[in-house]
Design a protein around this nucleic acid. Structure first.
Lengths: 229, 229
DNA sequence: ACGACTTTGTTCAGGCGTTCACAAGCGGTT
DNA sequence: AACCGCTTGTGAACGCCTGAACAAAGTCGT
């Protein structure tokens, strides 16, 4: 028997699998029973061949000549991405961004449930956000212990992000989503993903400048060089 | 003399340059005059050699044996990423996430200024968010024309994101940052960057399950897989 | 029942990004 | 003035991911 199931899946593929899953959920709601790789790829914004390669990491999921069963593939992807069980998350830093995340419906529908909201600001503590009371950040350790939170989301100012991260790790959180604009250092065995909104805008600005009207910007020290394009 | 200046800069490098710039700004505030690649790389969470390679796309920026001038490198990066001029942005979809972005201080400090906030909800229109009044989305075209907005940020529900995107493109916006969970299709010459919060969480969930739930299946040839990232 | 069409799954080559290792260059010291 | 240590900048190898072509397989029509 081939034990080819637990093939290692590239991280880039995992991210796309999550996108496919969302598209499939929409198709299932629309009553579709089958999809071709071409249609799925177009809806997800990727290459059809790449999509088939991504899915092939899960083993054969489709029927040749027909396509993929929407419900079947959805279930298989759900499984591969961690099942349907609810994943408890704690969120530290209930500012505007934190509040927005706390009651973003897109999380709950995918099995991510916020079970703890923490903030240092006494004015924020006690407020209810998304049906949950904000608690003082001093209770971080006890909240994680009570709720068995598996994922920590950091939306604090940059200065305190590392200390919050350290405290999360110390009580057993191994998955961290970081919105603070700093590079967190964590011990091996802990996964950190960083979302950096300013960087996204700055990449767009760079691409626009590069493509559009590239003025011959040159360092004042060196002589001017042509800016071909 | 080599005229190697307009080397193409990989997009991944551009994203990291933005991170270096932020770290340098912090160092400059702290009064530091010089940094080594090692220290900068550690603060940015990347490999020192990779950092030097990234910077080398801009031409020689450092002094051998000494390091990089904090102020000098900061200015050079600022220039490379589009200068210091303010970039006007419009934001469509003033829900909780949109409101959070609208007065996020991190954008303004990097030259990104929201000049138009748009929403369909009549209850939202007229509210002031971050010192700017919310206007009806019907005025999208005129707002972009008035303000010469260069970047569009979409935080609408998924269903209307494509139509908003089309309208932005039709009035000349060439850079779009999309928070809606759909793949936008745009004509050539338009750049779209997508931020997908659910996907980030789902990747974390997958990595956790993979590491935590399957010890014996996959051969741990590379033991102690560190996940520094 | 058979053939042809459709669509998947896989294999192969190409490009890109990352990492390591070394030579070049500058400042400080004797 | 020359040497030495330190740091940058770059060239090359490695691995990963992406994109395209091909074979396998199942279904529909006749």
């Amino acid at each position: 028997m081939p034990q080819s199931r637990p093939r290692i899946i590239p991280e880039a593929t995992v991210a796309r699998l999550a996108v496919y899953l969302r598209v499939l959920a929409g198709l299932a709601d629309g009553g579709r029973s089958h999809v071709s790789s071409g249609e799925l790829a177009s809806a997800a914004g990727v290459n059809p061949a790449g999509l088939r390669k991504d899915l092939s990491y899960l083993g054969p999921c489709g029927v040749r000549g027909v396509g993929y069963s929407v419900a079947g593939l959805r279930d298989r992807l759900t499984d591969a991405l961690g099942g349907e069980r609810s994943r408890p998350c704690v969120l530290i830093g209930i500012g505007r961004l934190g509040s927005a995340l706390a009651d973003y419906a897109g999380f709950a529908s995918r099995g991510f449930e916020f079970v703890g909201l923490l903030d240092t600001d006494p004015a924020a503590v006690g407020r209810r956000v998304g049906g949950l009371p904000v608690r003082p950040v001093a209770e971080l350790e006890s909240v994680v212990a009570e709720t068995q939170a598996a994922i920590g989301v950091i939306t604090t100012p940059a200065e305190v992000a590392q200390s919050v991260c350290d405290r999360l790790v110390s009580v057993g959180v191994r998955s961290i989503l970081n919105f603070a604009p700093v590079a967190l250092t964590v011990p091996a065995g802990v996964d950190v993903r960083k979302v950096d909104l300013s960087v996204e805008l700055q990449v767009l600005a760079f691409l626009d400048q590069q493509r559009h009207g590239t003025p011959p910007l040159v360092a004042p020290l060196r002589a001017a060089q042509g800016s071909a394009r």
